[in-house]
């Protein structure tokens, strides 16, 4: 059985016939070759697969692609400006060294941008709580929090 999926991904209309059990992250990575969205734990814990679904941060490994039918999806590839300039959150992560190995970074950046959209001037505690669904095994989170604070202070 295949089902037709219609999505808007990073501003582009996408249409595909897919097996219903295709996860959203699988569709993004394997069908669209948008491999910036990472699969870390594959159990909905680590948040490396975080994308925006209709503006909300969600874990794309824990949702069927068909559940996103007709939705707008934004991945890390769609965050930078069309001319390639990095998003202010990406700039802040780079400047503050908010990463080491970088595996969690796409998910962190997507969660952090969703957080600031809802709460543009979060406290440190609110940043830590807001990134609760994203795990980083390198940094100890200090510089990630600093990056989000830096980005918030500039906007």
């Amino acid at each position: 059985m295949t089902v037709k999926l219609l999505l808007n991904v990073n501003g582009k209309e996408v249409e595909a016939d897919i097996d219903p059990r295709t996860l959203l992250v699988q569709f993004l990575r394997e069908n669209l070759r948008l491999t910036g969205t990472h699969v870390g734990c594959d159990t909905g814990q680590c948040g490396a697969c975080t994308i925006h679904l209709n503006g909300q941060a969600v874990k794309s490994c824990n949702i069927l692609a068909l559940q996103a039918q007709g939705s707008e999806v934004l991945t890390i590839e769609g965050l930078a400006a069309a001319n390639g300039d990095m998003h202010p959150m990406q700039v802040a992560f780079k400047e503050c060294h908010g990463l080491q190995c970088g595996f969690c970074t796409p998910g962190m950046v997507m969660s952090a941008t969703a957080l600031l959209k809802e709460n543009p001037k979060p406290s440190e505690e609110q940043i830590r709580a807001g990134l609760d669904g994203n795990m980083c095994r390198c940094t100890g989170y200090q510089n990630i929090v600093k990056a989000v604070q830096t980005c918030a202070a500039r906007s």
């Binding site: 948040g47 679904l53 941060a57 969600v58 874990k59 949702i63 969660s111 969703a114 609760d132």
Partner: peptide
């Protein structure tokens, strides 16, 4: 409940 991403879904 859970975390921010889980609460959105």
């Amino acid at each position: 409940i859970g975390d921010r991403q889980v609460r959105a879904v």
